[in-house]
């Protein structure tokens, strides 16, 4: 499947660096600002993950929870999420977009309707945190039919057998969870160990793009740059929160941060 996501990885590879993936919650801290943030960081980010906020997240740590609750409080609905992404994709700053969230939101919206609207709004990929393999087989196929990448997750606890099956059924991107943690936990495993586990995945199929996420910050990102891609989420959400607390502009603060992140992996 050659879609915009694969192209983004190819471009990064040509430049001998990992792709930089950012995660922000749609509507955080306002609908307008979240679009502004996407546009501002797109200069440095290769792929933008955009969260559709859920109020009962079972895999997110404090930072993303705070961003999600802020967005929900601001009245962000799925249709707003689509609108933000559409406006971003139609702008001159457009980058590949992966929507990320929990299955109940998709279920209530209607699975086919959700996927059709993803297609209509030019969404390139999907991560559904609580729809693991093999439960996600049907849904992943529905994505494939619409040329939307369904991103499979792999964790340090994933068994060998599962690993091969998941990689085999994955599309063009795999997400390796760096450690046992909710999003944004303190990195409790050494970057060396994380890269070792990452390589196990790459050995099974070197062609699949594999990104590492969870707990990556300005401090640790450079030590992981041998990966195909690196995701920074909670650190960005935290930056939004602290800029709001300090009366600063979240758009410039986040943009500066992502610029720094990019510089560390060049």
């Amino acid at each position: 499947m050659i879609n915009a996501i694969s192209k983004a990885f190819n471009l990064a590879k040509k430049e001998s660096r990992p792709a930089l993936l950012t995660y922000t919650v749609a509507g955080d801290n306002t609908k307008k600002n979240s679009l502004k943030i996407l546009k501002a960081i797109s200069k440095y980010a290769d792929i933008c993950e955009v969260g559709f906020p859920h109020n009962t997240p079972i895999a997110d740590g404090g930072q993303i929870q705070t961003s999600s609750f802020r967005a929900i409080k601001n009245g962000v609905k799925i249709k707003d999420v689509f609108k933000i992404v559409k406006d971003f994709k139609l702008s001159e700053f457009s980058k590949p977009v992966i929507l990320m969230g929990y299955f109940n939101m998709v279920l209530q919206y209607g699975q086919n309707k959700f996927l059709n609207d993803c297609k209509k709004n030019k969404i390139d990929g999907l991560i559904i945190v609580d729809l693991p393999w093999p439960e996600n087989k049907k849904f992943a196929n529905r994505c494939k039919k619409r040329s939307i990448s369904f991103v499979q997750l792999i964790s340090p606890t994933t068994s060998k057998n599962r690993l091969s099956s998941i990689i085999k059924e994955s599309h063009n991107m795999i997400y390796y969870i760096s450690m046992l943690s909710t999003t944004g936990g303190k990195l409790k495993v050494s970057p060396k160990k994380i890269i070792l586990n990452y390589k196990k995945i790459k050995r099974i199929n070197p062609k699949k793009n594999c990104v590492i996420g969870f707990g990556i910050t300005e401090k640790s990102i450079s030590k992981l740059k041998s990966a195909d891609g690196l995701v920074v989420g909670s650190a960005i959400c935290k930056e939004i929160t602290s800029s709001l607390n300090n009366g600063q502009n979240p758009v410039t603060k986040v943009s500066n941060m992502v610029k720094k992140l990019k510089n560390k992996i060049l």
Binding site: P132, E135, S155, L180
Partner: peptide, 23 residues
């Protein structure tokens, strides 16, 4: 086999990390 009663209630909607401890 997916853990659903009546084909629609229950199941295992969990993050990948919990698959192994649950198994």
């Amino acid at each position: 086999k997916f853990g659903f009663w009546g084909g629609k209630f229950g199941g295992n909607f969990v993050p990948e990390t919990l698959k192994k401890p649950i198994n």
